[in-house]
């Protein structure tokens, strides 16, 4: 996975909890990040917790970028994020390559 940082590209990297408590705020940022873009990179490396509200945002981002023909990719899956995506059987839906760190306690980062 290459981190092409072209001029039109945008990185959305939520930090901390991606949960109901922060969902509204993250959604607004996401909306800004997705507007008028051709690519969207979501970096989840700094996400410490995710719940259904957070998951919904990711689904929303994915669906919206498919609709707008934006190349979207998610990177930096942390363990918590991966757990949720797996629990909901959505890996296929997002279709992002995932790097699983050997040390489970370590936060996963994209190579």
């Amino acid at each position: 996975m290459n981190r092409s940082q072209d001029s039109a590209g945008q990185v959305f990297s939520p930090q901390g909890d991606l949960t109901i408590y922060t969902a509204q705020q993250h959604k607004e940022q996401l909306l800004l990040a997705i507007n008028n873009q051709t690519t969207l990179q979501i970096n989840l490396a700094e996400v410490t917790d995710i719940d259904t509200a957070g998951l919904q945002l990711l689904i929303l981002a994915k669906r919206e970028s498919m609709r707008r023909n934006i190349a979207m990719s998610i990177s930096g899956h942390t363990r918590v994020v991966l757990d949720v995506i797996e629990l909901c059987n959505l890996s296929g839906f997002f279709g992002d390559p995932v790097f699983i760190p050997s040390d489970p306690s370590d936060k996963g980062t994209l190579a």
Binding site: K27, Q56, I59, L60, N89
Partner: peptide, 15 residues
């Protein structure tokens, strides 16, 4: 996971 009910980004209420 059935996401069909998820509205468009503008209409979606994050909560």
């Amino acid at each position: 996971t059935v996401t069909d009910a998820l509205p468009g980004i503008e209409d979606m209420d994050a909560e």
